[in-house]
Design a protein around this nucleic acid. Structure first.
Lengths: 279, 279
DNA sequence: CTTTCCAATACAATCGATTGCAGCAAATAT
DNA sequence: ATATTTGCTGCAATCGATTGTATTGGAAAG
């Protein structure tokens, strides 16, 4: 890799001059002839400024970090894609890290990314703890949460109104005539899940629907868990006639259970799932 | 952020001593008392070495870059996830970039990542051109291709035997009694697609199956294209009785077409798709 | 012919961490 | 008592780019 020094040597000027020519800004006057010589030299050496050196000197890296719990989940992958596109268009490079729903790893990534001189951070937190985020806030480090935030800790965040969404979905199912609606949950420590469940409960109460703990599953986000929890619910003495499902993978698991039980949608059972994804 | 200097000041030693204590390696002896003082100072300041400074000095960043065409495609997301996990376990940070099947962007990323002092590069190339990769190879820059490689240009690469896979799939369909098998392709400039098509053709020839250009679609990788190409093929005078499908999203598009046409698998039509993904 | 001034470029410090070498003290050898 | 070794730590250069502050050369002014 050619450095400023190499270009300077070739153009027979001082490195600082090369820098000034190449950044071109500033009100420092440069002879047209020098400028041409420098540009030619830079081109002939295929000079690319060393970003880590720039970042070190400037205290700015034009890079932002994104930490998501699971890159292989289309929901987060889609988020990553959008952020990446927007970053790229704004001249930023995005560093995507996958915490894999592991709190330790997330904390690791936060430290690691900061020490790399990242300009800002976007996090979909694991939500097993948040001291590291409190710390970020205290240090005035720019970061934004996405998809998940904390009730007890105020931050900038981009989230959906999960409670209202769940409530609306329930209302729709109620209007279809359903009285006994199951709720397939995900990890209940997570913001989105808690809110969706609140919406579900609110609807159950308000609409006078069947209130039964057996109609609310616990569990995680996986396909397998969705499958087994659905089977469990379908084999109840009074199975639900509709399901509200709090995650895309869980939904696919439920579908598998339906197929296995020979149930058809919407004839035998109705479902509404969160986080739609075709593929 | 605390720097080496800050820690040194607090511990009343020279920065170099702090560095030596913290790296601990080297055969330089350090008094136990000094060591303790330094470690205490580092802890109390929550010192984290600046990775960009280290990278600059050491010429090594412990970071590798991954460029994939589409992060929202579960196939690539899954690849990214595995590589990320493996990198993390080996003490490397992975930078994931999405070229979005845009050759210019890929080239941009290659330059950008290199100038960031990335230690190595993993690329699933767009395959519209490869001069930039030739350049990398010439400069002896460590990189590996994944999923896609070039017939005309030798590199390290991790790829599947797409031709054999397509052939095997065709053999299976033939054994089921199918004589008229369609091939839903993706962008034909791409390695995987070309190979799969070769396997398809080889099977058609070898098994004496129906040879008909109308049975081979062109097109891209999208859900929509899969849908429309399938509809087109189903409305042929002699529609295929089975389909070999070269991509996961295309497959989902085909499924939509089947549903719409009221076709059931495997009663009305058989399919085998590449790149399985549940969700 | 000297002084002043300005345009154009060079110098040097800086960002933070690392490392070969120098230096200083105490301990051992002569 | 002096010379030599050894153990520990400080000094300073370095990585590559940036930028405030010289410095240079030549032209204009006196």
């Amino acid at each position: 890799m050619a450095t400023l020094k190499d270009v300077a040597a070739l153009a027979k000027v001082h490195p600082s001059t090369v820098s000034r020519v190449l950044r071109s800004v500033e009100n420092v006057p440069i002879t047209e002839e020098t400028r041409k010589r420098v540009i030619a030299a830079a081109k002939s050496l295929d000079y690319q400024p060393d970003q880590r050196a720039r970042a070190l000197r400037l205290g700015k890296s034009n890079t932002i970090g994104l930490i998501i719990p699971d890159i292989s989940n289309p929901f987060f992958a889609e988020i990553a894609k959008s952020i990446e596109q927007e970053s790229y268009d704004s001249g930023y490079t995005l560093v995507v890290c996958a915490s894999n729903e592991d709190q330790e790893k997330e904390i690791d990534f936060v430290h690691n990314l900061i020490s790399r001189g990242i300009d800002g951070l976007i996090i979909a937190p694991v939500q097993d703890s948040y001291e590291h985020l409190v710390d970020l806030k205290k240090r005035n480090y720019p970061f934004v949460l996405v998809d998940r935030c904390f009730d007890e800790f105020e931050t900038n965040a981009v989230v959906s109104d999960n409670e209202a969404a769940a409530f609306e979905a329930m209302e729709y199912l109620k209007d279809l005539g359903h009285k006994r609606i199951g709720f397939l949950s995900g990890r209940s420590t997570i913001y989105t899940i808690r809110k969706r469940r609140q919406g579900y409960q609110k609807a159950v109460d308000l609409f006078g629907l069947d209130k039964d703990d057996a109609l609310v599953s616990a569990g995680g986000f996986t396909f397998e868990e969705g499958y087994s929890e659905t089977l469990k619910m379908l084999s109840l003495a009074h199975p639900p006639t509709a399901l509200l499902i709090a995650g895309n993978r869980i939904t696919f698991g439920a579908l598998k259970a339906f197929v296995e039980k020979g149930l058809t949608i919407p004839d035998d059972i109705s479902i509404i799932g969160f986080t739609d994804s075709i593929v």
